[in-house]
Structures are given as structure tokens and as C-alpha cells.
Design a protein around this nucleic acid. Structure first.
Lengths: 198, 198
DNA sequence: CGCGGGTTTGATGATGCTCAAGCCCGGTGG
DNA sequence: CCACCGGGCTTGAGCATCATCAAACCCGCG
């Protein structure tokens, strides 16, 4: 099937940024993944469910977030093409998740469950290496974001976000960007207004 | 040497929380580490230097932080016994570091440099696994902290910190806890005052 | 005893929140 | 084709939280 082929090409391209895989090794890999379409507004994970999969996004956009006691959403992560998304805590411990994951646009993903993930990591050390490197990069990015949250104003955090991901304005609604930054949509609107007057 | 033995025991204990190592494997490991004492207030890494080592703390407390244009410190991480600390970005890319690392008490560490780290990961897949697991746990903790920073008030973040690390008050000065939380020492003092009136 | 760093307390101000209303624009139905 | 609707963005007024600056306090140590 054509579309499926293209999804796996995106996965392979992403993997080969960090590790070199032979055709056999990659073929071995692919058998562990389940393709899944997620339509806009459809859940990949609901609060209270166990997160059974790591999701690799081949097209579209997903987000992970929580909903607090007041009903407010707090977006922890966006995931575009070539990114991974999951609730790792629930995935690894089989505890009910405190996060939700859904699609902000019609999206396509490749899912891998925990037994497969562990099997793949043990049977193919290169795969384990890939995830170590991925997690290292995430560690760096997370610390940058934590530093921003303790040292920068909302306006500075917004500018840093635009700097690190200039296309985000085209793909993500402002109220979602505000949620990701930890401010209200009103505050972001005023910040943008202020910036444009320069 | 007695003390050295004890440092490596702490390392071994920590590794064996996630992987099973034979005596030979562990012995192989130890040859890659350099013991280093860091006295209170002494730097392990200074801004602008390349971060040459991952540091494993066997006793004492270190912190990583930045200093902004106003001269304010922003603490990104504490590291106690059994924890790792480094500027991973600088370590992996050999770019000058934007972080500083120093000791808050007299401390002892085991250092491993980048070539050794890579050699160890390739020669001993278990070691790579250990770091993958460690980074997974860090991913979970980082996302929790990011979520806290975008969804909770300063008081709620402080209570969450006490909850996740009840002994922190005994070991870390208040102004450093405040810095870690992203608030001023004055604000933390008022929060503690408010909490104690209950 | 007095010094000095860390914490506390107080007064004032800035940043961002809340609530409410208005605006813009694309989609729907008459 | 146009009027209406609704969601998302903007704007405004008042408010809460936390920052800033300054002074006082506390306590270990020379």
C-alpha cells in the first residue's frame, strides 16, 4: 500500500538521523508498528486510561495536555511530523494516565506498544541507542524550557518559542500557544500587539 | 583505597537499580571514571567552558544554574548522592556551556568524559540501557515540572516540591529553593509564613 | 561584642489573570 | 446572496500574585 510505505519512509528518515540501519534491520523494525489515523479532535489517549503506545507522528499535529479542576487545559507538548508523543510514565508503569493526547489536525501515526518497544530495544541495540539519543535531546530541550519558565517573562518566552519554531504560528491556534506558554489567550494577544508595535 | 571503594559502591548500587551487572562488567565500568572532590562553592563547570564530563555524585550536593544579565542566578537542577549532573548540550556538542555547576556542600563525584561515555555505551549495551532508562525517568520528571510551571501558583509548586522531596528543606538554603522554583526569596518566605498558619 | 549572610517584614509597583464586551471571519441556512 | 451564528481573537477595567527596594531581624562566628 502506497500510503503505508510513505509513513514508514518518514520513520526511517527520522531513525537514520541518529543511527544507520540496514534494510533488514529496518524491515524488522517495521513489524512492531501499528499504523493509526487520528482525525482532528479525536483522542489517542484519554485521562484515566493506561497509555499503551508510543506514537510516532508521520503527518499532522498532536498535543499532550492536562485538564485542571477549573476545566482549564494545559498543553505540555506538541508533536509534528517526525516527532514522538506519549505519556511515558503511564506507558512504562501501566498506571492510569493523568494526561490526554489528541489531534489538532487530521494526523497519521505509527504506534508501538510497551512489549514491542522493550523487545526492539533488547533485540536491536541500535534502536536502544536511537532512543537514548532522542531522550538526550529531549533532556536538553526540557531544561531549556524549564530555565525559560523560571527566568523569563511571558513575552520573552513567546519570542524564544518563535525563535526555536518559527512556523508554529501557522500551525497552532493562539489559544493553544498561550496554553503551552502557561499564560491566558488574552495575555498572549496583548503581547503580540506590543511586539508588532516595533 | 577505602574511600574510593565506597564511592564506586554507591555507583554500583545506583546502576543496579536499573540493570544487572557482573563483577567483571562493573570493574570494566569503573576504569572509565575519574574521582573528583568538589569543595563547597567550588566550580565543576564555569560559564563559557566546554562541559567535559558527566558527573555522578557520591556524596554532597551540586547544582546547575545560569546567571542572567541582571546578575540573578536561576537554578535548573540540584544533584544529591546517586544523581547525575552535567550540561548535556555542551557535553555532547563541545560547544561552550551556558550553565554553571558548583557544589553547595563539600562533595565527591565520579567523572566520565565524552569519549569514555560513548565507548562504554557501545561496548556495554547494558550501560546504554541504563542511560536510556535514566533519561526516560528524567523525561517524566521534566514534564511534571514543566506542567507545574504552566499550571500551578508559586505556593502550589513549593508544596509539590516538598511532597516530591521532603528533605530538601534540610539540605538546601531557602534562597536556592526560591531560585529553583522561579520566585524571589521574599516570595518564598511569605509563602512559608502563609502555610505555617494552618 | 559586632560583623555579615540569610531570612523576614513592609510598602509600592509591574506583570499577568479574570470577567465582560466587542470585533472579525468563515460557515450555514433561509 | 445575504443574514445570522459561533468560535476565536482583541480590548478594556479591576484585581491577584509576585517582584522590587528598603529596613529590620536573627544567629553563628570571629
Amino acid at each position: 500500500m502506497e500510503a503505508l510505505q510513505s509513513m514508514f519512509n518518514i520513520l526511517r528518515e527520522q531513525l537514520s538521523k541518529h543511527i544507520a540501519l540496514t534494510d533488514e534491520e529496518f524491515l524488522h523494525c517495521t513489524s512492531f508498528f501499528i499504523p493509526k489515523k487520528v482525525r482532528k479532535d479525536q483522542y489517542l489517549l484519554q485521562e484515566g486510561d493506561v497509555c499503551k503506545y508510543l506514537a510516532f507522528v508521520t503527518t499532522g499535529t498532536l498535543r499532550s495536555y492536562t485538564i485542571d479542576a477549573k476545566g482549564e487545559e494545559h498543553i505540555v507538548q506538541f508533536a509534528f511530523e517526525g516527532w514522538w508523543i506519549s505519556d511515558l510514565y503511564s506507558f512504562l508503569t501501566s498506571q492510569p494516565s493523568t494526561y490526554l493526547i489528541d489531534a489538532l489536525e487530521n494526523s497519521e501515526t505509527l504506534l508501538i506498544d510497551a512489549p514491542s518497544y522493550n523487545k526492539l530495544c533488547t533485540s536491536l541495540p541500535k534502536f536502544e541507542r536511537y532512543f537514548r539519543i532522542l531522550l538526550q535531546n529531549n533532556y536538553i530541550a526540557s531544561h531549556r524550557r524549564i530555565l525559560a519558565s523560571i527566568s523569563l517573562s511571558a513575552e520573552e518566552r513567546y519570542l524564544q518559542l518563535l525563535d526555536s519554531c518559527p512556523t508554529i504560528g501557522q500551525r497552532i491556534a493562539q489559544r493553544h500557544i498561550a496554553s503551552f506558554l502557561g499564560i491566558t489567550p488574552e495575555a498572549l494577544s496583548r503581547i503580540r500587539n506590543r511586539i508588532s508595535k516595533k
